[in-house]
Design a protein around this nucleic acid. Structure first.
Lengths: 225, 225
DNA sequence: CCCTTACGCTACGAGTCGTAGCGTAACTCA
DNA sequence: TGAGTTACGCTACGACTCGTAGCGTAAGGG
């Protein structure tokens, strides 16, 4: 599997890779996870079924790669001027990503399988989760430089906090879409961002902080309301 | 389907129901979702495969009922004295529920299918989600009576807030367990509760994180901070 | 030119699905 | 008590998907 081991012989077709991943996404949209068969994907991609099995050991790994490609296209941690705006943008971006019929569904199904498959869980983590989690670290670092968050002395506690916040953001968005089956619209994104920044007690009080009693520390960006 | 239509004839065996649902949970633990077959469940339960198909139209609906039974056994909204303690208890309870090998996995898989099946989504909602969501409403009402939360004038906004908080609690716990694959231990439950109540700005600043150099022990009596 | 690897194609056994058919068991009502 | 109704167990079945093996061919490297 090392690159040196592939120096010789016919190289794998990169175009076939793109066709297969694209066909996988198309099949996911049309059929959903359960009815998705590798034979169907191969037919859509215009390749032989055996070619699929030579590259991916299972349906799960194929779908992980197919979904990861979509996630990679939309990875951005642009600076929106404030912690509030950064979080809100991340929520909307993640919502738009998971609202796609091929991403959320597939992710849930793969995660379900990953419970019984350690290697699959690692693949999901490195291909999707960790890259998203990096955005949390970047955003928090930026907020610290702005003075919106206190400095973290303990790096271990800092990492724990980043994990917690990532679970909160990604988990809540995912739950909103997959369980509650409600859209991630701008109003919800703002309400959720308020909850994350100011907590239940603060955010609930002033009707989305519009007439809020001015929570200390962070000030609202001009964008909202 | 109405009860009056079942007045006559041989009644369905309630014991068979219990055996089937129990066998489904056992099979989920052993085999996981993907390898779970209805034939296997029937064999474990000691019933004929046809009996299964007479009662449940699909594997999904069977699993929903099997998982819902577990959830129902652990529905409790006990008063723990404060909003913080109530939330923390709910987080731990939900975590313990989803940490079971038969619940989290199955729930994820069923939700993935529910994307393409409206009736299945309704079944999940009424059998599991709505009952859990009621606990949020109860807890918030109690907190309001304690004076920990302001009164909600607008009932529509109140319902929106309850939905948001439920998505946040359930989604974050689910994400922690299924995606991050980390346990819902007491320390994490406390950190998350702090985040929910006081927000990123508040919880990060004051919590135990900054206080102790390395509070590895993690045995922290309830109600501190 | 030989070696190596990838590809397309076909065919196959194994396994699951969901249903049909039949005889029997359990319960209700007249 | 007997007739009607529904549930159950069992067997068998066609249809489908899976994952692999075998073969000949295409595409690069030493």
């Amino acid at each position: 599997m090392s690159p040196s081991a592939r120096r010789t012989g016919r190289p794998r077709s990169a175009e076939a890779d793109r066709a297969i991943l694209g066909a996988t996404r198309a099949a996911l949209v049309e059929l959903g996870w359960a009815k998705l068969t590798l034979g169907d994907v191969a037919a859509r991609a215009g390749v032989a079924k055996t070619t699929l099995y030579r590259r991916w050991a299972s349906k799960c790994e194929l779908v992980v790669d197919a979904v990861a490609a979509v996630f990679d296209e939309h990875l951005e941690a642009g600076d929106h001027g404030s912690l509030h705006a950064d979080v809100e943008a991340a929520v909307i971006r993640l919502g738009a990503l998971l609202e796609r019929p091929e991403t959320g569904t597939a992710l849930m199904a793969v995660l379900a399988e990953a419970t019984h498959d350690e290697s699959l869980r690692c693949r999901v983590r490195s291909a999707i989760v960790d890259r998203q989690k990096r955005l949390v670290t970047i955003g928090r670092e930026r907020a610290r430089l702005r003075g919106e968050l206190p400095r973290e002395e303990d790096p271990e506690a800092s990492a724990r906090n980043a994990d917690l916040i990532f679970d909160a953001v990604a988990g809540t968005v995912l739950h909103r879409l997959m369980v509650s089956a409600e859209p991630v619209d701008p109003r919800w994104a703002r309400d959720f961002t308020d909850l994350l920044l100011y907590g239940m007690t603060g955010a609930d009080a002033g009707g989305a902080a519009a007439a809020g009693p001015a929570p200390d520390g962070a000030q609202k960006p001009a964008g909202s309301v």
